[in-house]
Design a protein around this nucleic acid. Structure first.
Lengths: 155, 155
DNA sequence: TTTTATCATTTGTATGTACAAACATAAAAC
DNA sequence: GTTTTATGTTTGTACATACAAATGATAAAA
């Protein structure tokens, strides 16, 4: 069907997934600006608030980010005084500081604002359904061997 | 419904879109490895092959990348001897070199391999439908004011 | 014809993210 | 009880990508 590259592009999951990722990232950054943090940093902080003492490993599983990425994010949050590391032998426990805790209401509000913002455009049902669809697809692809830091057996 | 952050995460379009983007990027990089180029570089080269003399502006519209990003990609392709810039007054024309042209079959093959790879996991119908869904959603959000290099009026 | 405005492109700089290697500790094997 | 192995964390480095500012060049206005 598709005869030229432009048509192929819009039917290519790499291209469309990344286009969507870029536009939704712009929206999320705008919505989360009141927190002073990027969306991913916010997620990390929320997880630590809800689960004090959680380790980077668990974080990287939950957030589906590479462990080194989690380390960098934690560095940033620590330097902003929102998070604390407590070494415990091999592992590290992450704890929100009081300043980190104080951000919680701002974060919650930003999160809702973000949700409204994309639901205004996509429709609430469709927006939520899309998130579920993407989550399902991402998980399927991951279980098929495209996990993080995976040497991906073949070739 | 969602009571904790983990649940919220998997229902958050920022999170799910980026998770999918990361996993599909890993797959695409693997598939395109035989070309020696990253997937986005491949797209750019293909567009130049199909449309010799095309300018960076048009590229950035087609690829939905910032103009500066296109400049960097063109730099790379030029330095690899696959693409040539020809200045034409205010604009620049991009032309594939013979070496660039020679890559075409390898690229086509890699593209098909990539498509097969994710369709094997998601199903062909579902994989293709997903791409269309993502493209539609991304375009809706962009027309709603979340375009590249846009100051995004509000707030 | 000079000035000004507009638009395309590039450069400087910053951020998110990853991989591979280094480091550190705990568990297992001998 | 020392050596090996496995696992969690951080560091070095690199790439994709973006924004904002600088540059350059044509077109429009004076």
């Amino acid at each position: 069907m598709a005869t030229n590259t432009k048509d192929i592009l819009t039917n290519c999951l790499y291209f469309t997934a990344n286009s969507l990722s870029r536009v939704i990232t712009r929206m999320a950054e705008e919505s989360f600006r009141p927190t002073g943090l990027s969306p991913s940093h916010v997620f990390l902080l929320m997880l630590a608030i809800e689960n004090p003492g959680v380790g980077p490993k668990e974080m990287s599983d939950d957030l589906q980010l590479a462990p080194s990425t989690v380390t960098r994010f934690v560095d940033t949050l620590v330097s902003k005084g929102l998070l604390e590391r407590k070494a415990a032998g091999k592992t590290v426990g992450l704890y929100p500081t009081p300043e980190g805790m104080e951000l919680q209401p701002v974060i919650t509000e930003a999160w809702q604002a973000f949700h409204h913002k994309y639901c205004d455009v996509l429709g609430e049902t469709e927006g939520d359904a899309l998130a579920v669809t993407l989550d399902t697809a991402a998980r399927k692809l991951e279980s098929a061997g495209y996990k993080l830091t995976c040497k991906c057996g073949r070739d």
